[in-house]
Design a protein around this nucleic acid. Structure first.
Lengths: 197, 197, 197, 197
DNA sequence: TATGAATGAGGCTTCATTCAT
DNA sequence: AATGAATGAAGCCTCATTCAT
């Protein structure tokens, strides 16, 4: 009992409608380029209704991030925490990430968009934990003692850009293999005394 | 013959004034976040004057890309084309990119903007030729025969994200070394038959 | 017979709740500056409930006027009608008015609003009958035969402005004495043939 | 030479157009009740133009006040400063004020309006100096030593309300005589030891 | 060519009011 | 009756762009 009333369901539904519209619109126009109006227009709702749910574009962004935190990050993290080798760690991370993008693509086909639009909230939210896990992995001896700050950045960058390819139809497995191999091969080189220039 | 008249010089000057202002403003606010007004305001010129030189913000963007093509990319390309080793190729590319960002940081010392602001014309234009050069380098045997599409993406991603760190004070040399070493170590692994998972 | 049912009492209660909130809100924001939403927000009731009792802000205004007609004005009129001297007439009028303002100040201790806020229903309603009473007082020989139109205006003006002082902490007694003395002294002069300029 | 160009004249003209519209609209709707849109609508100008001249309704209000300060108050003040008797002081003040209102009425006929709309900027602006002059007049022995705070309020209130009558066709001379006589007669009474209640 | 005021479209937000529950 | 979410009109303001000077 205490099942959600019809009204409560409608309310939850509207919230989802707005979030889904925002996802699409942000992907299409970029977060900065999108307006609240754009989001509303992508919705059957009236303009005022938006403000019953969110105070601003930023708040939608936040909600989108939260959604993702709930949906993807636990799995992603779990995979990393359970990893017993550098390869496992990297493979689990990249795979989870690319899978997520591919799933998104399936349920919400992406319109043509320029490559520098990859600033969607969902994507960014997941990276916050990465650094943390990296530190743990290094401390545990799973990864060599490289500069964790730069390594986080490099991992994020590669995930980011390969993710773009996946978003437009690239193969998840292939992207995962490529990224994993790159870092697996590169990591030892990063600890070697620098001889370059 | 036909040295530019005073009038022509004044004209060229205004054009440069606008472009310089746009560079600063786009860097500060991002392309999407910036308005033509913002650009004009960063200029001693009147609003109408803007339209004597450019039809829109997009056209300024294009001009900025062209500018950088003229100014930065030839040198970068040259270095890549003359490279005699994978390391030289990578090192030249990363170094040029991070130097570029550091220079921008120096002339525009108030970033306060997060990662979204990497969508500037110069940055994007710089990557346009990378793929081309990669293909050439692979054909020349300088780089192993990996998937050039994915490699381009991975290079861009790492450059992007390490570039962020440089933008906020990171060291150019350190970023260059890190990125170069990562790919130098990773490239051989990319050609090995995949054994992962 | 026919004592109010529980339901009728609840209904009357809600009406009073809204009126009380409106009084406070109008006093704080002024009639023009206040919105129906403001009134509802100052209430535990839902927005729709407002419309079960009033059609609009204006109707609340009217009801407030009626309320005060019921509550304050009879006493004031009584005092004026029973006055046996000009002083009694004036003193009763001013005192009632300033007391009213002081009472409002006590129950709503955050004025922060300047002179504009004197346009509340109670205040205006209170002056409506003054002219009538003045005519009666003049006819009864209580007041000298001055221009009742102008006298009404002058009384209202003084009451208004001294009322402002009372609103911000001025003493009721002092304001009453001042206003009464002014008119008591001035009234004879008003009947004298005009020699001025 | 340096005569205002056509453009400069148009600009000054627009400013006046807006101010005139604001005067009318504030008188009609009250300051609080009026919107910027209302002002614009009372104008042949486009909405954006308003903001070329004023940042907000409040700024128009300020400008209106400044206008009045320039136009009326110097004369008003002069008359008071030159007064050599209480009667002269009062007469000059009231007369100047009512004249101003009458002049306004002539050039800018007032629509029907309720009595509590008399919160127009012009009217209020002039009273700021009154208190100052009153203090000076009392110090100079021109007026008896009454409570200057309350006297200011009373004078303002009477001017206010009689001004309303003048605004709707009342006679300037009559209002001036009435107000002057009231205070002339009332002032002595204000200094007498209080025997009231 | 440069100027900058005027324009009105369009973005943001709040409001009064309705109406299904 | 009471509720409170939905609605869209309307207020606020900024913007890109034009055009007379």
């Amino acid at each position: 009992m205490n099942a959600p009333s019809r009204r409560e369901k409608a309310k939850a539904q509207n919230r989802e409608t707005i979030l889904a519209a925002a996802r699409t619109v942000f992907a299409e126009l970029g977060f900065a380029g999108a307006t609240v109006r754009d989001v509303i227009r992508a919705t059957p709702l009236a303009s005022g209704t938006f403000y019953n749910y969110f105070k601003s574009k930023e708040e939608v962004y936040q909600a989108l991030s939260d959604d993702v935190a709930l949906a993807v990050r636990p799995g992603l993290r779990q995979a990393r925490l359970e990893a017993t080798s550098a390869e496992g760690f990297l493979h689990a991370s990249f795979r989870a990430f690319f899978e997520f993008i591919a799933a998104r693509r399936r349920e919400n086909p992406v319109p043509e968009t320029s490559r520098f639009r990859m600033d969607s909230p969902e994507v960014l939210a997941g990276f916050a934990e990465l650094r943390e896990d990296l530190d743990a992995a290094i401390a545990a001896g799973l990864l060599p003692a490289v500069d964790a700050e730069l390594l986080t950045a490099a991992l994020a960058g590669v995930a980011f850009e390969l993710g773009e390819r996946v978003k437009f139809g690239g193969d998840v497995e292939e992207a995962t293999r490529f990224a994993t191999a790159l870092f697996l091969g590169g990591l030892p080189a990063l600890t070697a005394p620098d001889a370059s220039v």
